[in-house]
């Protein structure tokens, strides 16, 4: 009977990756092992988040450069735009204000997507959270026991230097493939997933299934 079966082991007991990482309480990190004070929507009682991943901050560089250009654009471009010069001063100021408001909206939107688009690994399953538009989200779940194969990819000089890459997970779940791109330490993520799959198999053998 499940109630009389031995209790599950602590994740750091069977995972070298988690044993090497301190629990993380800085929620701005892209690689958070055992994050503190964090929950996801469909988290079950007793289910523990082991790893929370989001894209590495370096992947934000293109839009950050664009945002800096947008902030400076009124000073850089408007002197070369003759119709702007003939506008009254109040129109010039308001147009710049409107432009900077649009820029702030762009920055907030990009930051939100970076902050919340994530890949979560718990002791029971993995969850891929994607936000495609303003009000559309997609959350894919797969039980750890359904994982069939885990691959990693790293490409590019900068990404190799920063240890940023992708993890591809083949599953027997409804979603056959999970691709998590631009995450830090992809090899650690792959190693953790393999350790968790092995533990799931061990739990079944020893009758420690929850």
């Amino acid at each position: 009977m499940p109630s009389s079966s031995p209790s599950p082991r602590k994740p750091e007991d069977y995972s070298q990756v988690l044993a090497a990482e301190e629990p993380c309480d800085n929620h701005l990190h892209a690689f958070m092992a055992r994050p503190q004070n964090m929950r996801y929507e469909a988290q079950q009682d007793g289910e523990q988040i082991l790893l929370f991943l989001r894209r590495h901050p370096i992947t934000n560089l293109p839009w950050i450069l664009l945002a800096i250009f947008m902030i400076l654009a009124p000073f850089l471009l408007l002197p070369f735009f003759p119709p702007f010069a003939i506008l009254p001063v109040n129109f010039k100021l308001v147009l710049m204000l409107v432009w900077w408001l649009f820029t702030s909206g762009f920055i907030i939107e990009k930051l939100l997507v970076w902050f919340f688009e994530s890949f979560i690994i718990t002791d029971e399953r993995m969850i891929d959270v994607d936000f495609y538009s303003l009000v559309y989200k997609r959350v894919n779940y797969a039980q750890l026991e359904k994982i069939e194969d885990v691959d990693t990819q790293t490409g590019g000089v900068l990404f190799s230097l920063m240890d940023v890459g992708s993890v591809l997970v083949q599953t027997a779940a409804e979603i056959p493939q999970f691709e998590i791109s631009g995450i830090p330490h992809p090899s650690k993520v792959a190693k953790l997933l393999n350790e968790l799959v092995q533990e799931e198999q061990q739990e079944k053998i020893e009758g420690r299934v929850r």
Binding site: H27, N37, M38, R39, Y40, E41, L101, F102, G105, I108, E109, L112, F115, F116, S118, V129, F131, L134, V135, K137, V139
Partner: peptide, 24 residues
């Protein structure tokens, strides 16, 4: 139109913060 977009953004933030709860 932008004010409407800002309103939708509040809705989006609500959706996102319900999906993943953090101290932020």
């Amino acid at each position: 139109m932008y004010a409407l977009f800002a309103l939708v953004m509040i809705r989006q933030i609500d959706l996102m913060t319900k999906t993943i709860e953090t101290p932020y």
